[in-house]
């Protein structure tokens, strides 16, 4: 199990990386953290002509907070979501979800954007990206474009990135102070990809009713799913167990994943309602904590 030969490129600037990507196009792969790519290389399931390693590009290593946006560069490692104070302050769902990604040894190396580009529908960060209405920033020789998360994920391990594009950052809208968040994942073992997982961010009005609900679900389809029907069923409602349970059932039609050795489709249909219910419930509790904390 050894990687096949490839041309190893380690550009030191984004421009150079973009140049290389446009030169090699679909015959190249970007190496960021490598925690998903190296297994594929070692198993020779991918055979790129060129590997474009972006780890030497200092410009991509940044986490930047603005008033309304948290921008995470393509070189930022997953563990930094847990450790970086700014992340927890601006988008508190991220550090919570990050703790579920693989194991600490893979989070030390794996990158946030790499997980998005890998686009595993059972992974945590794609799910949080669609939940948070994140925007992916891609560079090509013709310039920079942004792609909304819900359009970015196009299938199992498939994204809207063009062959000559390099993903350079992801932008998360800053979560309102009063919002509550929750993240729930069911996996067979600690660190495994989700059988199903859910992220939720909610805002409650002064009566405690939902003014906004954002729910993303992993593991149930070819892409992370934004649970619009669940959200719509809750706007204006009180966060009662009954309401949340009824709304969570709205996720069922979105479950398209078939049977595999770890779970059946019927199980995932059920599990999706469980994780959605639990994530929303946790988000409500978190919102209450935040308002109590004021």
């Amino acid at each position: 199990m050894k990687p096949p030969p490839f041309t190893y490129c380690d550009p030191e600037s984004v421009d150079e990386a973009v140049g290389l990507k446009s030169e090699y196009g679909a015959d190249s792969l970007v190496l960021a953290g490598g925690q998903s790519l190296l297994p594929l290389l070692n198993m020779r399931l991918v055979r790129p002509e060129a590997l474009i390693d972006i780890n030497k590009i200092g410009d991509l290593q940044k986490i930047e907070g603005r008033s309304d946006i948290l921008e995470v560069g393509a070189g930022v490692r997953q563990y930094e979501l847990e450790d970086h104070a700014l992340v927890g302050e601006l988008v508190p769902l991220l550090p919570e979800a990050a703790g579920y990604i693989g194991h600490i040894e893979t989070r030390h190396r794996g990158t946030v954007c790499g997980s998005l580009a890998h686009a595993d529908p059972a992974a945590e960060l794609p799910c949080t990206a669609v939940t948070l209405d994140a925007t992916v920033v891609a560079r090509s020789p013709s310039g920079t474009r942004t792609i909304e998360a819900q359009h970015f994920f196009q299938g199992r391990m498939a994204t809207a990135l063009e062959p000559e594009e390099v993903l350079v950052a992801v932008r998360y809208p800053v979560t309102p102070q009063a919002a509550g968040h929750g993240f729930v994942e069911v996996a067979r073992r600690v660190g495994d990809l989700a059988l199903a997982g859910a992220a939720a961010v909610v805002n409650l009005d002064e009566n405690g009713h939902f003014t906004s609900v954002s729910v993303g679900v992993s593991g149930i389809s070819d892409t992370p799913v934004r649970a619009r029907a669940v959200e719509n069923a809750l706007i204006g409602e009180a966060p009662t167990e009954e309401n949340i349970t009824r709304a969570a059932d709205e996720i069922v039609p979105s479950v398209t994943a078939g049977d595999d050795i770890h779970a059946t489709r019927a199980y995932r249909r059920h599990l999706a309602t469980v994780v959605v219910r639990r994530a929303i419930t946790a988000a409500v509790a978190s919102a209450h904590e935040r308002s109590d904390g004021k």
Binding site: Y8, G34, L38, E105, R109
Partner: peptide, 19 residues
């Protein structure tokens, strides 16, 4: 194959020596 890389634990089978 875990080693400490710049002080942090990583899987050394998932990195290239050139890195």
């Amino acid at each position: 194959c875990t080693v400490l890389f710049d002080g942090l634990s990583v899987r050394s089978c998932l990195m290239l020596a050139v890195q």
